[in-house]
Simulated assay, not measured.
Amino acid sequence: MGYTDYNTFLMFGDSITEYAFDQYCLSTDIDAPVQFTLGPALQNIYQRKLQIIQRGFSGYNSRDAVPLAKSILKTEHDNLPDSKKIKIAYMFFGTNDARLIGNSPLNNESMPLERFIPQMKEAVKEFTSRNIPLIVIAPGVHVAKDWDKSHPDDLITGDYRTNERNKLYQDTLKEIITDVPVLGLYDLMMDWINEKPNERSCSDLLCDGIHFSGKGYKLMFDALLETIKKHYPECHPDNLPYRFPYHADLKDDTFANID
């Protein structure tokens, strides 16, 4: 057994994936409270079982997901021995695609639904053609008043975002993508809020109106593990072998033949 021979868990998406290891919720204040984040949580629960690979790209959309999926899977899967291939993956795009198109020359994110869906289907096929267990994650909630504070120009140019659009893109993904499970974060987040509507709000789940707070990532983490348990139980951490012997079982010759 080679020391580096670990299968992998691929995190693939936009900025919500890119920032999934930021425990300060995008704050530059070193005294800001540390929050729960998805990346470290996955690393912890899959320790000595799978290696976590983070491939998140801020501002990217479904158009970019297709060529990236081809390239990432070629490098991180096709060109590797079975002992290092991707064991399971999630793909999370749509938050940028759902952005409305106004007249800003800087808006390279918005993607009409009639392009978003076939592009997502094509990206999904890159995984399914390789028999890689995949979970598609659909957009969550949006808080305009929080986002508009830091991006007031969006209101002027018309390149803003809405909950209605996020839900539309989520619902369409859930309807069209049927060969792999789709985790709809919008519905999940609204269900969480509606459990205690007088105590919870969308702002609790986001740090700036779009990107996730610790509570948002925790909700996503729990739902992701439940989805894995339901659809890909062989990839759930409870069902994966612990790599290398427990320390109490180590002997002088345990690693005599390690590569």
Rank of each mutant, 00 (worst) to 15 (best):
N7T: 15
N7W: 02
F9R: 03
G13T: 13
D14F: 01
Y19K: 02
C25A: 15
T28L: 13
V34A: 04
F36C: 03
L38Y: 10
G39T: 08
G39R: 03
G39C: 03
I45H: 05
R48E: 11
L50F: 06
Q51G: 12
Q51M: 06
I53A: 00
Y60Q: 07
S62P: 09
S62W: 03
D64L: 05
A65Y: 04
V66R: 01
L68M: 15
K70D: 08
S71D: 10
K74Q: 13
T75F: 04
T75P: 02
N79T: 12
N79M: 12
M91F: 06
F93N: 05
F93Q: 03
T95F: 02
D97N: 11
A98Y: 04
R99E: 13
R99P: 09
I101V: 13
G102C: 14
S104Q: 02
E109H: 13
E109L: 14
S110T: 14
P112A: 01
I117V: 13
I117G: 00
A123C: 14
V124Y: 00
V124A: 00
K125V: 12
K125S: 12
E126G: 00
T128P: 00
S129Q: 14
R130G: 07
R130H: 13
N131K: 15
P133N: 04
L134V: 05
I135N: 00
A138H: 01
P139S: 11
G140N: 05
G140C: 09
V141Y: 02
V143Y: 03
W147I: 11
D153C: 06
L155E: 12
G158D: 09
T162V: 04
N163E: 05
N163K: 05
K167D: 10
Q170G: 10
I176L: 01
T178G: 04
T178F: 07
G184L: 06
L185G: 11
L185N: 08
D187R: 05
M189V: 15
E195T: 15
P197D: 08
P197S: 08
N198R: 10
R200P: 04
S201W: 05
C202F: 10
D204H: 11
L206A: 05
D208G: 14
F212D: 00
F212T: 08
S213F: 04
Y217L: 00
M220D: 02
D222I: 14
T227K: 07
T227W: 06
I228Y: 02
I228F: 00
K230L: 13
P233E: 08
P233W: 03
E234T: 15
C235W: 01
H236T: 10
D238R: 11
N239K: 05
L240P: 14
P241Y: 01
Y242R: 13
R243E: 00
H247V: 14
H247Y: 15
A248N: 12
K251F: 09
A256W: 02
I258P: 09
